[in-house]
């Protein structure tokens, strides 16, 4: 029950942040990505605020032995730069530039019922499942041919 409460509180804060920051508006996000246009640097301030609070907060929280509703912290441990990280980030960036939506703002906009948001989220979920299903193929991607290893 605690974990569900934790998820809900964090999700509410996140959704409020997306609305107040203006990221819920794809046109504003494109205004940031469009360096050659009428550039709007606002998104840099969203990232600055988010990174600053998270960096300070994580330092404090991770000093505790464990989180409140779980036995341990679940933190990414990988440090390698593999092809699927670069390919995935590249494909994501192209989709972000085409639609002005990354996953959070698209979900946050769902309640306003625009067809553009609804089809984007539906397609995004299909893309996620597709990536999961093809995971075996892509997780096998390496920089060198296997025989050379």
């Amino acid at each position: 029950m605690g974990r569900i409460f934790g998820g809900l509180i964090a999700g509410l804060l996140f959704g409020a942040g997306l609305l107040i920051s203006g990221m819920i508006n794809p046109a504003k996000v494109i205004g940031f990505l469009d360096l050659a246009g009428n550039w709007d640097p606002s998104l840099a301030f969203v990232m600055l605020g988010g990174v600053a609070v998270a960096a300070i907060g994580y330092r404090t929280v991770l000093r505790r032995g464990q989180p409140m509703f779980e036995p341990r912290f679940t933190l990414p441990t990988r440090n390698d730069i593999d092809p699927s990280l670069l390919l995935g980030a590249g494909l994501f960036g192209i989709g972000w530039g085409l639609g002005g939506y990354c996953p959070g703002p698209a979900l946050a906009g769902l309640g306003f019922g625009s067809p553009e948001t609804l089809v984007f989220v539906a397609a995004m979920l299909i893309g996620m499942v597709g990536a999961r299903l093809s995971g075996k193929f892509f997780s096998g991607l390496t920089w060198k041919p296997k025989s050379a290893a």
Partner: peptide
């Protein structure tokens, strides 16, 4: 830069950071 909203974006971003801290504190 007609649509520049530094304060609202900074505050909204801070809420997103706070969400990240809360999820780490509660659920790890």
């Amino acid at each position: 830069m007609d649509n520049f909203t530094p304060l609202a974006s900074l505050f909204g971003g801070a809420l997103i950071g706070l969400s990240a801290v809360v999820l780490m504190l509660l659920n790890g």
